[in-house]
Design a protein around this nucleic acid. Structure first.
Lengths: 136, 136
DNA sequence: AGTGCTGGTCTCTTTTTGAGACCATCACTA
DNA sequence: TAGTGATGGTCTCAAAAAGAGACCAGCACT
């Protein structure tokens, strides 16, 4: 019974150590997971995993994203090294966004979760409905 | 060149269709991904994947979570069907949280991302540092 | 000169997160 | 029998993030 506790404690201690001795909340794993979170990041990663896109194309592809959030999300993804941004000096300068190797690598792992979601989203929906019903 | 566009368009159209004809933003996949997001959800899922825990144990395990967020995050996880909550009628009633089958199933996929994060968090860190330096 | 497309930035409002105080119950202890 | 600590919460309010919408500069076409 204590064995399991020690397993977890050890694991969390490792994270704690990696995170620089501070608290677990800053652990790098959480940092990366946070990087995947965000309302639009997964959607944009999925789009860019298919092929590179221009700013306006992405905006049209995801109609209900505001320009501000599109700009900011792409900036964040670029900052984390997942997305490459290239400006072409056309008449009205156009900007193309594409996945980097790191981005593709991350998306490979992230894809597992997407696949799970595709298969199980109705189970989650059902659980939520049941729960809400039982609380009413 | 247009072939790829059609691929993505088709995929996104599928999501759009699943989501009930509305816009892509409500697609169930995004909904599930959102469910995984949140500052504490991954950490609590990792803890509960190890073994069931009581409220106070979790609070001690993750020292920098506030009681409010612990309550709420566990509530959300329970609502999504990932976590089971059981109250024991001890003298001061104790509450135990454990993963459901759905929770374990989801964690299996999510685990891929955690493993990737464990292996590559330094690359992300480096990318971020580079980017910040180049912006300065 | 006016319109539209390019890819943004700036400001303001709403929503989400988070920290901290407060609460009710029971057991043990002085 | 009043004080202390442990149980698992809730409530209030401040800070941070997300989001909507106006505005901007440059160039082409009409």
């Amino acid at each position: 019974m204590d064995g399991k506790v020690i397993n977890l404690k050890a694991k969390l201690e490792v994270y704690k150590a990696i995170s620089g001795g501070g608290n677990i909340a800053n652990c790098p794993v959480r940092e990366v997971i946070q990087g995947v979170s965000g309302k639009w990041r997964s959607l944009l990663m999925m789009a860019l995993a298919e092929k590179p896109y221009r700013f306006g194309e992405l905006r049209r592809l995801v109609p209900d994203i505001s320009q501000r959030m599109l700009t900011q999300t792409l900036y964040d993804l670029q900052r984390d090294g997942y997305v490459h941004r290239e400006v072409f000096p056309t008449k009205p300068p156009s900007v193309e966004y594409s996945l980097t190797d790191l981005g593709r690598s991350m998306f490979g792992a992230f894809h597992q979760l997407i696949l799970w979601a595709e298969l199980n989203h109705d189970a989650v929906r059902a659980a939520r409905a049941d729960f809400d019903a039982s609380q009413a």
